[in-house]
Design a protein around this nucleic acid. Sequence first.
DNA 1: CAGTATTGTTAACAGTGTTTACTTATTCAG
DNA 2: CTGAATAAGTAAACACTGTTAACAATACTG
Lengths: 201, 201
Amino acid sequence: MSEKSRYHHGNLRAALMQGATQFIRLHGAEKLSLRALAREVGVSQAAPYRHFQDKVALLSALASDGFERLGERMRATFELHQQDPQSALREVGEEYVRFALSNPEIYRLMFGMKASEFDASEMQVGHTEGYCILEQVIERGLEMGMFQQHDADMIAKTAWSMVHGYSSLLIDGVLELDETTALSQFQQMAAVWFNGVVNSR
Amino acid sequence: MSEKSRYHHGNLRAALMQGATQFIRLHGAEKLSLRALAREVGVSQAAPYRHFQDKVALLSALASDGFERLGERMRATFELHQQDPQSALREVGEEYVRFALSNPEIYRLMFGMKASEFDASEMQVGHTEGYCILEQVIERGLEMGMFQQHDADMIAKTAWSMVHGYSSLLIDGVLELDETTALSQFQQMAAVWFNGVVNSR
DNA sequence: CAGTATTGTTAACAGTGTTTACTTATTCAG
DNA sequence: CTGAATAAGTAAACACTGTTAACAATACTG
């Protein structure tokens, strides 16, 4: 079978996902066209529908993929700092921000396609996966007596909110910082968060 | 001139914005079609282009409008609590979350249409407006000696990140809470943030 | 090797954003 | 008050899009 012009592509699904990833990195997900993508990959306009029910199904697959990669990175970082919950929390957070900065369009997909768009269940799995890691870190910190006796859930929510919010503001260009200053400022923000804002008395 | 069937609509621009607002509240901004909107308003498909250069120009106008309303609400809340920076911070934050919850689709537009899509300058104005209020609150708290001696900018960034992140997670259906519990949990989160997370020693 | 399931293809439908050339009201000088 | 300039509408067309249906080539399996 020759390299070119073979009727069956081989693994079109993967090629589509890769092509889509590359495209949205450059132009954003809302500009993605299945037809153009098919053209790019060298296949007919209807071919993608053999592998994805929908356009949003393709995007969902990308998002799902992103959750997996993010989860892995978070877990790896967590395990590096298992002995010290405080730096675990900080470093997992930084890794999260780092992921968002290097995959902005995927990150935007991961959130922002819940209710109306997508199946939701698959997305929800991605979210809870990350949340679990976060809770583990916090539980450990509480057990070791290194954290204040707040409700673990509330600590987790402030943490996630802050990290997700910071990531979003960076990605959406609201805070205009290059990656290195963004990350170093994150460290300072973590310090503020750890120590609190108001004076005790 | 009869009420119906007059050639000139009167104030089509406002009608389009209102119709669009109503539509995206129900179906989301990505499903908005200018043609359908024109049909709805009872006008030809090309008419909107007399009032908006683009589809994104219309969406941008909605976002811009949202920033104005949010800014007003934040400022009003700030002025209510001018004497107490701590509750000012907390209540302005709650008002922010409240706005996001009652205008989720507009809120999503306000962020998330920066770099690629839009003019940016008009958006940036909206952002800085809110940030200014935030900074004023914090400066005041620092002057009054009620806040810890952190860099004001860092306090502002943690605050904004947390509030924006929490709003986003709620809106995107990641945290599935009804409005009242969302707001009451926000109060608890603020308490965590104020007092800090780790034990001093 | 036959037959079925998979994975492609082409052609069509309905809908979209946007532009162009044209028409109708409104406004506002003289 | 009239008439020209302008603002605000229209219809028709272009080049796209997502998606489906009917069909064709390949790959797998008994």
